[in-house]
Amino acid sequence: MRESAAERHDRLLALVRERGSARVSDLAGLLGVSPVTARRDAEALAERGLLDRVHGSVSWPRDAATPAGPGPG
Rank of each mutant, 00 (worst) to 15 (best):
A14R: 13
R8T: 12
L51Y: 01
V36G: 08
V54F: 06
L50H: 08
V24W: 00
R8H: 00
R48N: 02
E18I: 09
A22Q: 10
A6K: 12
R62T: 10
P35Y: 04
G49W: 00
R62Y: 01
P70L: 13
G29K: 07
A6T: 12
A46D: 07
A64S: 14
L30Y: 02
E3R: 15
E47I: 00
A64V: 00
L15C: 01
A42H: 05
P61W: 01
V16D: 03
A28I: 02
H55L: 07
D63M: 06
S25T: 14
D10L: 10
R23G: 11
R8F: 00
D26V: 13
P61Y: 02
G32E: 07
P70E: 14
P70R: 15
S34F: 05
A14H: 09
R48T: 03
A46T: 06
D63Q: 11
V16E: 02
A68P: 08
L12S: 07
P35K: 05
G29D: 13
S4T: 15
V33F: 04
A14K: 10
S25W: 03
R19A: 15
L51P: 05
V24L: 07
T37H: 08
A65Y: 05
R39V: 01
S21C: 12
D52L: 08
L13T: 05
L12V: 03
M1I: 04
D41Y: 04
G71E: 14
G32S: 07
V36E: 14
R62D: 11
A38T: 07
A22K: 06
T37D: 07
E47K: 09
E3V: 14
S57M: 11
P70D: 11
R17T: 09
L15R: 11
D26H: 14
R19W: 10
R17A: 13
R48G: 08
L12H: 08
R17E: 15
L15T: 05
S21R: 14
R23M: 08
H9I: 01
D63L: 10
G69W: 10
A14D: 13
S4I: 04
V33D: 05
P35G: 09
A44D: 14
L50N: 03
L31M: 09
L50A: 10
V16M: 04
R53N: 03
R40Y: 06
S21H: 14
V16K: 06
E7T: 12
E18V: 12
S59R: 15
L51A: 05
A65S: 10
R19Q: 15
R23C: 04
D41A: 06
L50T: 00
T37A: 14
G56S: 06
E7C: 01
E47P: 00
S25E: 15
A5Y: 08
A28Q: 04
S25M: 04
S57E: 15
R11F: 00
H9M: 02
A28S: 07
A46I: 03
A64D: 10
A42E: 06
D63I: 04
A6R: 12
W60S: 03
V33W: 01
V16N: 03
P35V: 00
